[in-house]
Design a protein around this nucleic acid. Structure first.
Lengths: 161, 161
DNA sequence: TATTGTTATACTCTATAACTATA
DNA sequence: TATAGTTATAGAGTATAACAATA
């Protein structure tokens, strides 16, 4: 007879979560394959920053970091990288001189179009047997997943280590 | 009148793919949050390796690398890490002395249970308002996405750079 | 000669902490 | 004193290439 701690989660739930965790980790391989298909010096991260600026208009670093789900320091470096290449513009924020306003340059817009095209070409090949509905469903569920993880980072207190 | 290359993908498709790319990138933030909830020295990568060995039984490094979607050299290092901690066992493969057979140890099984529990606890909180059906749907779609990217790595020849 | 796995090296992405400038 | 952003540093994850042992 095995001593076993009683958990709140059922066995079936745990198996389901285990599988989800595995699939979430595997997404990295997909992302890397998309990255390898982009022209030099560009990752999907680059494309996402440009796409967010294209979609949401002017942003500050802090807000962009929130949207990306990474630390502000990381965002700052990425942004510097893109600014050096002339793809985004950092103008002083008149309302708060600690901040700068990020804006896509025309060159940045061109670059975004190019990166989007390249990603779309690969996705069109890979997802050729996917219905529009399934692609949309996956996108929506990922968006919802992200929202579920968005607010105050839940850190469950450690019991063992 | 702007000179513009005619692409095979329509505008609507490109927007859809752009959004999917963004959501796939954002998965990293979710995975990192799961990682932060695991005990020291463990990442979701650790848990996934253990889970694969638990699910599929004995594996060789090459096969494990395939399942993980990463290079064999990377897998080799991860496996060495886990073997040092006594969570997996590497016994010589009698059929091919270049290979070793990876097997979960009892300690590894305990560790996996612990990591699974920790991940499940966080997921249970974060996905408390998700239906089982939606969780399953997301898992299935991610699994299918991975399968779509699994075979021969499609590298579309670069046109500009 | 080809294949399996390991190791050395370099690169990217990330977080933490120290720091500057401004609120 | 608190906040927005930058930079320095360190750690994890990955790929490429060179290598060893075996097929």
């Amino acid at each position: 007879m095995k001593q076993q701690k009683q958990r709140e989660t059922h066995v079936g739930e745990r198996a389901q979560y285990e599988e989800l965790t595995r699939q979430l980790s595997a997404v990295g391989a997909v992302r890397r394959q998309l990255d390898r298909n982009l022209p030099g010096g560009c990752s999907s991260g680059t494309a996402v920053v440009l796409a967010l600026l294209d979609r949401d208009g002017d942003l500050r670093i802090g807000r962009l970091a929130e949207l990306l789900g990474v630390d502000m320091s990381v965002t700052s470096r990425h942004v510097a990288h893109l600014a050096e290449r002339g793809w985004i513009d950092r103008s002083p924020d008149p309302a708060d001189r600690r901040s700068r306003i990020l804006r896509l340059t025309p060159e940045g817009r061109d670059r975004l179009a190019e990166l989007s095209d390249r990603a779309a070409e690969l996705l069109a090949v890979r997802l050729s047997d996917w219905s529009d509905e399934d692609i949309h469903r996956l996108t929506s569920l990922l968006s919802r997943l992200r929202a579920s993880f968005d607010d105050t980072p839940t850190r469950i207190p450690a019991v063992t280590c």
